[in-house]
């Protein structure tokens, strides 16, 4: 009945409105649109906001969070959660700072940090899978454990004086047009790329999605459920350790009160990025966009100058809510 109206104006608009991307990409596209929109508004309202360097600095300032969010994406895709990553970051900064202080070579420092982070993740994964403990509980325990270990290493903040670390921390690559991108940001983007490849094109990655779809079915299909489930927590631990290294580079210190509550930022970024908390649907690219949206809010507030910083929290809260509701609506048929 109303079809005649539609065919009447078969112009560009009609074609645009008829184009519909596969449903599973909608949340990510939504986040992308939001990010672009925020940058647009910022560019109109504040001088210098639209400068590409602002965007590049955003990547640098949030490199560690990007890496955390990548690890968190793996876990959430299986339908789990990892609350320990914030503490794991703090522990990693402390291990790095302390081992550097006593004169370990940089390679060994990095090795031991990555190893300890991955071990913590793996241990939680084993608990979750073999003892059937809820991810929330197991990683909550991991969170307290890691934070406690921090105090065991040092109550005070330990500065990092190492030359190599400083070089990396301040190093950047120069882009055409005189813009520059910090090495840590480049590294974070590389992590995103690797993770995207693993999730979309490897058996492990596809099994992650299968687990999120239905764990019991995945088991009956003969997929390696145990290895995959433990694997995602190991990956999340590894990402937390990597994030910890980036955070140590960012702050040039190790401190037991670093990264308090950062796990929640990571979860928020993943959710805003369109990944379903119940698992099975989502993309790492979404999580990257999620982090960028969170970062943009902060940039907004610092450009404005009159807004207080708690507006960041409030807007994050609102955004998370909006996205969860939007997902509900989208996934309902």
């Amino acid at each position: 009945m109303s079809t005649q109206v539609a065919t009447a104006e078969a112009g560009f608009l009609a074609r645009v409105s008829r184009f519909s991307p596969p449903r599973r990409y909608l949340p990510v596209l939504g986040t992308f649109a939001l990010f672009i929109g925020m940058f647009g508004v910022g560019g109109i309202r504040y001088d210098g906001f639209a400068d590409p360097q602002v965007f590049l600095t955003l990547l640098l300032d949030n490199g560690f969070l990007i890496v955390l969010a990548v690890g968190m994406t793996f876990v959430i895709l299986t339908g789990g959660i990892d609350l320990s990553v914030g503490s794991n970051v703090a522990l990693s900064t402390l291990i790095a700072a302390r081992t550097l202080e006593v004169g370990w070579p940089v390679a060994a420092v990095i090795g031991v940090v990555l190893l300890s982070g991955t071990l913590l993740g793996t241990a939680m994964g084993l608990l979750i899978h073999y003892f059937d403990i809820q991810p929330f509980i197991a990683t909550l325990a991991g969170m307290f454990l890691a934070r406690g270990l921090c105090y065991l290493i040092s109550v005070e903040s330990i500065p990092i004086e190492d030359g190599t670390f400083k070089t990396i921390a301040f190093g950047s690559i120069t882009l055409p047009g005189g813009y520059y991108l910090g090495w840590t940001a480049v590294f974070a983007l590389a992590v995103v790329a690797v993770a995207a490849y693993v999730l979309s094109s490897t058996r492990f990655g596809r099994t992650v999605y299968a687990l999120g779809g239905s764990e019991s079915s995945a088991l009956l299909m003969g997929l390696p459920v145990a290895a995959t489930k433990v694997g995602v927590y190991a990956i999340s631990g590894l990402c937390a350790a990597l994030g910890g290294l980036l955070f140590a580079l960012y702050t040039l210190s190790g401190y037991s009160l670093h990264a308090v509550g950062m796990e929640l930022d990571a979860i928020a970024a993943v959710v805003i990025g369109g990944t379903l908390l119940t698992g099975g649907r989502g993309f790492v690219v979404g999580s990257l966009l999620g982090v960028l949206v969170l970062g943009t809010i902060q940039t907004f507030i610092s450009f404005d100058g009159t807004l207080s910083s708690w507006w960041t929290r409030i807007s994050i809260g609102v955004l998370v809510l909006v996205f969860v509701v939007a997902q509900r609506v989208l996934t309902r048929r």
């Binding site: 596809r206 999605y209 299968a210 999120g212 779809g213 239905s214 019991s216 079915s217 995945a218 009956l220 299909m221 099975g280 649907r281």
Partner: peptide, 8 residues
């Protein structure tokens, strides 16, 4: 019962 994963 169908034991497959709906999201793949």
């Amino acid at each position: 019962e169908v034991n497959l994963v709906p999201n793949l």
